[in-house]
Design a protein around this nucleic acid. Sequence first.
DNA 1: CTAACGATTCGCT
DNA 2: GCGAATCGTTAGT
Length: 199
Amino acid sequence: MILPLSYYQSSDVVTLAQDLIGKVLTTNFNNQRTAGIIVETEAYKGPDDKACHAYNNKRTPRTEVMFHKGGISYVYLIYGIHHLFNVVTGKQDEPHAVLIRAIQPLQGLEIMLHRRNMTKPIRRLTGGPGVLSKALGIDKQANQLDLTQSLLCIEDQGALLQHSEIIASPRVGVDYAGEDAKFPWRFRVKDSPWTSPAK
DNA sequence: CTAACGATTCGCT
DNA sequence: GCGAATCGTTAGT
């Protein structure tokens, strides 16, 4: 089933990031259905988190979407090249978000291979926040979409990852956030071949 | 208006 | 393991 709007209203974005592991991220652009199991996430805790774009309730045209109530997408460009996909969570004016860092291919493998210009499903196909967006056809057009609609949604299909263990670790690429960079708000499935190797 | 930089990836060594 | 690629967003002039 598609996760209901209420699922995203929790103010505890760290717990939510952990809970999203094992859920299914689906896109349906141009009548091409692609989906993957979420195996790695990162939590960005709005106003209190220096690593978050909306730290200290900073509102800019780009971060404005994070102040919406939870349940919509936040897509933006990084390094001028890659689109990163985030899930906006929390209530109205609580700028929390969860970055999806890696998925395990589940549906539409051929389409994803084509979008990535690859021939074999190796980790590089969907392992990494920039590449999974490309595999799913996500670009800035997918910003601010309702996650309870079939175009772009997250589903709960039950225990797809049986006997899996979730481990927490510090986030990467956010050194500028000082002490906040050390919070163990990065979650991933232990020993999954679809995430970057654990340190 | 201008300049600096980033929640990264890829190709080569 | 290392360095280049590349451009929208941001903040300051």
